[in-house]
Design a protein around this nucleic acid. Structure first.
Lengths: 374, 374
DNA sequence: TTGTAGGCGTTATCAG
DNA sequence: CTGATAACGCCTACAA
């Protein structure tokens, strides 16, 4: 009775125990079972047309029989292709990037590619180590929502290394100045529309909780904001722009700073440049009892589900993030030719909801006192 | 002039263009540069003590000089270890699982492991194909938030295959009946506390928007809910339980159904079994003009940032998801011995906020009319 | 302590 | 069309 479970099970005709780690079948096994050489087996399984229907049948049957799955490491070693792509995003917890990751991963999976997802936490050093790790796994391509600028002392060197190694690279959501690779980024048209709408509602003091100037989206949205004010002949007030870092805490800080201004200089409307900062800002406004839109009109970039929990719901500048993911993957798999445009801009859409109202509303109240409702 | 850039650059003696995909250095190169054999180089770099300090210095210097990184595919082929783990979650966009993914990925990266993240979209068939794909990449271990039950006709067969192949497996957030592997799941104490608090506030008709019975969390939360009512001698009303599917739409449906009950049978409080359903439910309540907590007290499982945007903020049952991720990774890397407990329960915490109030409030109003505020 | 050599599983290059 | 066979880059007995 000292038979191995394997033998015993077979002898007794008993169902195999769940824990029978039999080594997976190799191409050799398949070839042997099919009565052909490994070369022929390989050809059949990789769709090489130089095969007879006889061997094709024998090999496919044997492969199915043995539940053969090619060893991806061996294949990668030989062909230097790993059937994997890397995706580096600033923060998985931000639903915006979560959506992006979801979409990229799903489409990649449909094409038989696995996605190695990594997060940079909006930090340059983390981006560097994460990129090195992804590169060390020989991903076939890389989609990156980048950090940092190339003209700063400590720039995104790992990104240069990626390009230098000849690994296909696509930037998503943000660009890096001086790095000429295909990219898909959101347009600023939605933001422009939002500011114009606020202006046409009579708002004269419109604030911006901006993204960091180190990110192209931060810069571009600020430029679009300024340009829209400028085009309307409005005088921009630097005190009405708070530069945040795309994190909720900086949204709160922005609110605190704007509400801390002397009464006459406070804004009657605020535009917030990304979702997490908007969540922080809205939470802070909520805590302070600032009413929207009576005391302050609000527009947020990125249309989060959470905005529908506010009463009235928050106006938003929506992007089709799923489309952005799909475009990024396409740019990666079918790179644009040299002549073609390498930067795709996705339109954004201003969605007006109850959180914006005429500027007159604010003027008729004695609000923005920052917390006391008396 | 039809030379490849490569050849042309060489012939002209021109500085190499930035796109010079020089093949990465191999162990051979390092050994040659250091004047030792590949075996010695390998030993030095893998920390084998059988090395002289002379060769150690030469090899490390050469490796640094050549920017050597071992080829992970070759190493994996030899050692059958890929330095990668797989993580399968239902939905990256759910911040709950986004947090989990973030935490697992971060800790794994600190240990030099890459994480292959995949999403099952709360679907059994997607889970199966995703698992097969992860297995085919020979991940060293797998953390899965599972779908399906083993006793159903089409069960999670791929999970059995994982176990059968001997791949270390840890379940997170949910369990699968009959699958005896290490798991970390949330406790139900927070939910019990929440129901008890509602009861002590005088609520007699407490509704539950439950998770699917196909998931262990769905079942367990419903059981805890029933048990808490039972312990208090309350009579549960099946009409007050709506079984959703953890997605926002089913939260909306639950609200519609509860508000559709005849006035006398409507709930004065509702507990919602996960974050996305809570978002859907709160959005629906908001649209219908149902006031919280005057018309309805609300408690949601999982503490989302979005809940702070509501006025008053929504009471929640919080879990330390980061801890859950850390525990899952630990269970994977250091599996419990046979005698030890294999299922870790993480405590959950009921956080009371303004969205719950005494039951009397509801009775004093003529509300729950579903939209008309007159 | 060091070097030689075999092999992990696959693909690609040759002759047949 | 097929079959030997040589890599791919690394690790590790085994022998020196």
């Amino acid at each position: 009775m000292t038979l191995s479970p394997d033998t015993r099970a077979k002898e007794l005709g008993v169902a195999q125990l769940p824990s029978t780690p039999r080594p997976p079948a190799t191409l050799r096994d398949v070839a042997a079972a099919a009565g052909v050489s490994v070369a022929t087996a390989s050809r059949v399984l990789s769709g090489n047309p130089a095969t007879s229907s006889t061997s094709r049948q024998a090999v496919t049957a044997a492969a199915a029989q043995l539940d053969f799955h090619p060893n991806v490491q061996a294949r990668a070693l030989r062909s230097s292709r790993t059937a994997s792509i890397g995706l580096l995003i600033p923060d998985i917890r931000n639903p915006h990037f979560g959506d992006l990751a979801h979409c990229v991963e799903m489409h990649a999976r449909e094409r038989g590619l696995v996605t190695l997802i990594s997060a940079s936490d909006e930090r340059l050093d983390t981006q560097e180590t994460a990129l090195r790790l992804l590169m060390s796994h020989n991903v076939d391509g890389l989609i990156v929502v980048p950090q940092g600028r190339r003209d700063s002392p400590r720039g995104p060197e790992a990104l240069d290394a990626v390009v230098q190694r000849g690994i296909p690279l696509v930037l998503a959501d943000r660009m890096v100045s001086g790095l000429d690779v295909p990219a898909v980024v959101p347009g600023t048209n939605g933001l422009t529309d939002a500011v114009n709408e606020l202006l046409s509602l009579g708002h004269e003091r419109i604030a911006l909780i901006a993204g960091p100037a180190t990110s192209s989206t931060g810069r571009e949205r600020r430029l679009a904001f300024d340009a829209a004010l400028d085009a309307a002949g409005a005088t921009p007030d630097p005190d009405l722009v708070h530069e945040g870092d795309f994190q909720p805490a900086s949204g709160r800080e922005g609110v605190a700073r704007l509400l801390g201004l002397p009464p006459g200089r406070r804004p009657s409307a605020v535009v917030i440049a990304d979702g997490p900062m908007a969540v922080g800002a809205l939470a802070a406004l909520n805590e302070r009892g600032v009413r929207i839109p009576q005391d302050l009109s609000v527009v947020a970039h990125d249309d989060l589900d959470a905005f529908r929990l506010c009463d009235p719901p928050v106006s938003a500048i929506a992007q089709d993030i799923a489309a952005m993911g799909a475009v990024a993957l396409n740019l990666l798999l079918e790179p644009p030719a040299d002549g073609e445009e390498r930067t795709v801009r996705q339109p954004t859409l201003f969605i007006q909801r109850g959180s914006v109202a005429e500027a007159g509303l604010q003027k008729s109240t004695t609000t923005m006192e920052g917390g006391d409702d008396s």
